[in-house]
Design a protein around this nucleic acid. Structure first.
Lengths: 341, 341
DNA sequence: TTGAAAGCGATACCAA
DNA sequence: TTGGTATCGCTTTCAA
């Protein structure tokens, strides 16, 4: 592939100066006369010169302005918003996001990490705390700052910002147990690896046990965690377990799908069955009912992650871990204490 | 910033061969003995060598494997899904997505284009058909394939895939006029530039005129096009225009927010007012009502865009423009023909 | 099958 | 204030 691009040398020649002088002008480094600057800039404009940043990074033997950001999927709006927050913040400081979607697979994440590191990024932001052994080795040897987001972890590879998903699941389970529910259900999606959603489920199960209740069925579907998945997942769940009293979903979208399934089947909520989501997404607050859920400051996670990374890149002191917490939203899709007990 | 990275030269030295031989082994280019390969690979593993792709691209004087993908915002799920489709396809072919968010601002897009081009990308995918003059100049001089997506355009800068937004707005307007509605409203969001949503609005207005109806009020909010924006936008709209018969929204999320506002105010739909969205998003099909909307094959747009770009990068013949069309979904949030007339 | 040398486009460093 | 030269890590080219 032949280049027909203009190089700095050509600009310099056209302006009648050396490469170094032209370079200084372009970087506005000082040490040249006003007359020289004008000559050089005139040629830059005339020739339409665009610097080759590859060469710049390479020559300076430094890192690029890329930041690799890996999330599981974009179809899940919470991750899309996480990425949105990160990219805005990074972009404001002259960085470019190189996107990675792990699809909840450690080998995909590993391959992506290897590729991104080969571009000499300024840093990496990756979702989740479980990584393949080789990925961990690459990250440690990479020599760049790494922020693990989403699932809080007090001893991260490097830095970490997120929340304790186990605790959030536990909170929901304890809350439901406290309302008198005893027969719990769960609907989520299945992945090969332990992720934040599995931690929530684990917390939920533990809380059920502690409350003397049981999670009679955990349905894990091989699908994306969206509205329709919640809809048909609920159908499957209730077909086999008619006596469930309350269902906790992997996220609000699935819960809303589940709610709609119940409604269409003539089940009244919360009289006949309780529904609880996770995430407290905008859609939850615009439904005719208030969904019981767990509110999570997901936008803040993205912002903090970018801030922590930037601080590290610029060698400024910064916190290395940050737990953003969560909040249980009681809602109206579970019964009040004492009802039906 | 000092490097402590292992270079190819070091691997070669450790293996007792020349840089070139090591390079050939790593690229699996052939022209070396099995014994040599083993020696080299052993050192690669032992030293944990990671190639510097910056140098590779630079030395070979070629393009990188980056593809710049620019969308207006990620908070809008339709763009997030577009990006999802694009990145999956590109990733499967060894490319990395460099993200850009224009935030509907031409100057941001222009700055991003300049930066991305300086990284010698294999190609660019950008949303929308309006760009700053300098952006257009950069794209033309860039020497890389460019796909404009979303708003179909029969004479694009290079390639284009999308749909005719004006026509989709016109279709909705004509449909509503045909149902007997005469007093139209519109709620959307405001931007400095003409985008796809403004084309839809323009088509809607034209259809209203052609049908002898009028768009009494177009409310353009300075906000993101989400549920809550639709909710309070409808409040504002109806406060000033009580006699509107039907409201078309910029997208389904806003329409759902609007529906909920009406419901909470005791308005019955479609008896008291008609509601129409755009996009036919998953959330629309899981509501208790069937939202009147326009279905758009947005996932296909992402796929096609990536495919067209890849074909161009690999110098294979491919279509340069593609109109994916749209489909009107009648729904139950507007009255049937003859009702209330 | 292997290797030596030149060069990609910029910057660092030193000299003038 | 300016410029020459070495250099970054790799590939291309040519020779052995």
């Amino acid at each position: 592939m032949k280049k027909n691009k203009i190089s700095l040398a050509e600009v310099a020649r056209a302006a009648g100066v050396s490469k170094m002088t032209a370079s200084r002008v372009l970087r506005d480094e000082g040490g040249f006369s006003e007359k020289t600057r004008n000559k050089v800039m005139a040629e830059v404009d005339r020739l339409g010169y665009l610097p080759n940043r590859l060469a710049t990074v390479f020559a300076g033997d430094k890192k690029s302005t890329f930041v690799g950001v890996s999330i599981p999927e974009l179809g899940n709006e919470i991750f899309a918003q996480l990425l949105d927050g990160i990219d805005r913040k990074l972009g404001a400081f002259g960085h470019q996001t190189v996107l990675g979607m792990s699809e909840h697979a450690l080998d995909k994440e590993e391959a992506w990490i290897e590729t991104v590191l080969s571009w000499q990024p300024a840093g990496l932001i990756i979702t989740g705390r479980s990584h393949s052994p080789r990925a961990i080795q690459l990250l440690k040897a990479g020599g760049v700052p790494v922020v693990e987001i989403w699932d809080f972890n007090s001893s991260p590879l490097d830095m970490c910002v997120g929340l304790n998903h186990f605790d959030s699941g536990y909170s929901m389970g304890r809350y439901l147990g406290g309302l008198g529910y005893r027969k719990f259900g769960y609907v989520g999606t299945a992945h090969d690896i332990a992720n934040a959603a599995s931690s929530r489920l684990a917390g939920y199960i533990k809380a059920a046990q502690d409350a003397g209740a049981t999670v009679e069925k955990q349905l894990l579907l091989k699908d994306v965690p969206g509205f329709y998945t919640g809809f048909y997942g609920t159908e499957q769940l209730l077909a086999a377990h008619r006596d469930l009293e309350v269902v906790f979903y992997q996220n609000d979208n699935m819960a809303i799908g589940g709610y709609e399934y119940c409604r269409r089947k003539g089940l009244e909520i919360p009289r006949d069955i309780g529904i609880a989501g996770w995430g407290d997404l905008p859609i939850a607050s615009i439904q005719p009912y208030r969904l019981t859920s767990i509110a999570v400051p997901h936008l803040r996670i993205g912002q903090y992650a970018a801030e922590m990374l930037l601080a590290q890149v610029n060698q400024q002191p910064a916190k290395r871990t940050r737990d953003v917490g969560f909040k249980l939203i009681p809602g109206a899709t579970v019964r009040l204490y004492g009802d039906n007990v």
